[in-house]
Design a protein around this nucleic acid. Sequence first.
DNA 1: GCATCGAGTCGAATCGATTCGACAAGGGGG
DNA 2: CCCCCTTGTCGAATCGATTCGACTCGATGC
Lengths: 341, 341
Amino acid sequence: MATIKDVARAAGVAPSTVSYVLSGSRKISEETREAVRAAIERLGYHPNAGARSLRSTRTNVIALALPLSSSRGYLPVGGRFMYGLSEAAGEHGYDVLLITGRDAGPGGAGLERVARSRLADAAVLMGVEMEDPRIDAMRELDFPVAVLGRPAEESAVAWADLDWEEAAAVSVRALYEAGHRDIHYLATVEEDIRDRRSYSVRGIDGVRRASAELGVPVPVCPSSSDPAELLRRLDALFDAEDPPTALAVQHPAAIPGILRHLAAWGIQVPRDVSLVAVGNFPEDLGGIDATRVELPVREMSVAVTRLAVELAADPAASRPTAGRELIPPRLIRGGTVAPAP
Amino acid sequence: MATIKDVARAAGVAPSTVSYVLSGSRKISEETREAVRAAIERLGYHPNAGARSLRSTRTNVIALALPLSSSRGYLPVGGRFMYGLSEAAGEHGYDVLLITGRDAGPGGAGLERVARSRLADAAVLMGVEMEDPRIDAMRELDFPVAVLGRPAEESAVAWADLDWEEAAAVSVRALYEAGHRDIHYLATVEEDIRDRRSYSVRGIDGVRRASAELGVPVPVCPSSSDPAELLRRLDALFDAEDPPTALAVQHPAAIPGILRHLAAWGIQVPRDVSLVAVGNFPEDLGGIDATRVELPVREMSVAVTRLAVELAADPAASRPTAGRELIPPRLIRGGTVAPAP
DNA sequence: GCATCGAGTCGAATCGATTCGACAAGGGGG
DNA sequence: CCCCCTTGTCGAATCGATTCGACTCGATGC
């Protein structure tokens, strides 16, 4: 592998000159610059990452911590954000290092190991709890952190998240505007509500707000990670006095199963009941063209990466004003909402 | 951040002694070792990754290249393997660095950049084509590579893959054994067949083999990435002279949509038609408990990681016998196969 | 004609770990 | 009693890049 010395020799200059050509931090004459560039090209030179980070204390790497979900093991959402973050980081000249599983979560050794060994310049934490001990741990190490999700104490750390409260409100309003008055909200799985996860709590808050605004009751029913149990609750809903004419569902993964189940009862969407999905992945609802408020994976990734990169470049920026990015929801009209009868 | 010198001073020894305690490559007396360990603990010392890799030319990082799929953008499968690989690598003391998108594919600069700058000790390539120029490029750089998927020239590179041929054969046999004689195989999407992707071609080969073995014709129909088009083909299938009594489907993502569509026609699974899924993700078929041959994500990750780690430790091993891991399929019996009428 | 200045380049120190040769102390054999 | 070997530890060189101070050379000012 070619080193900076090889390049210097090939170009007939000193190693430091090569370095200055690369960094642009000192003025180098046009002809020298050209000679160095040619040598670099010819030798296929890339600076050794270890040496560079040792000397400059910058790695150009962002760590992405994808912890286990307490209830469901690996988060499918992690895969999507991995792609989003990797691409966004690439545009800033950063690579992404993974920390997954137990290691990535609260109390996990992985994040601290990466911070202490300077494997990365900053970390993006996902699946953050409303209160997260990892944030304080990293602050003590002076390790910049940005969070995907909205922590309880918003000024404690830089974060980016979808405005879940507004997302839920938007979904309810869309159904109201189509004329529905018997709207039910199928919230996140109950474990998440119990753990007071941010998107669960805020989603329900948004429903309450919209309900009050519109002057229409919108009952909230928690979903279940057990498909059979979920379908039982669905049955209970439709067996009641006045069955809903519209559903907003903040558990997108369950939607294909829900539609199948309703179809087996002869209930068709949107003929008999309208449906809005809240928080599904872009381009993925099991092939259903639902009316929906998507999880803005790309926007969130771009936002959180920008925060992380800024902090990495200037760790001092961490304290005074932790960056905040509340991303407004967008309603996408699909084929699962019809006017109320 | 504490350095090895700080630890040495705190423990009253030379830095080299600390290093030997850490690596165990020289004998150190029990009491010195204890003193060093205590100092390390007290200071929260972790070796600086840059310095370590500079000196030792080992980074303890594996790069994971997740290229774009020509037809569908980001591979959902990438997210699953990311988790699998990260965990498997962790058990060997390695971290995982991501290379995604255009950068990760053939001709992409990412992989070469990582190799040349020694950001990683080895790479795992996924979504490898039957012929893949990246493999030769990495060989020229003496950069160890292991592949998730089965390349055309099997001895050219270390690889791990599900035995797709046998997987398809197993699915057909399972239906045959349940008494079905009108079995159809819904293969991968046609773009993949056109591109002669390994799992597509080998899946179809497996069907041919099973069909010949069993003495029963098994027509093969390519799937489509356009849901509407797929459903049209499905209709054509069931509108024909003798509609199938059983389907094997190597396009798991389409299965929820297929079931919904059949249900709308009054065709129930498994009452009217049996179904086996081939190559779905573990614990993910949109909530359907299908009879299936899963993609063994965990086994494949473990296997390919082992290959990559071996090559990283001893790059010379690359040439003589490139490792091969052909993972046998396992049929999981779910509720979508019934005896033939 | 000499001092000054700026542009462009070089040399050397440095980052933090690894690793090899050297060496001190103690034990055993002749 | 001396030599040699083993055990445990140290010092110094080294990996490859960055960066600061110093230097050279030609141009400019007076």
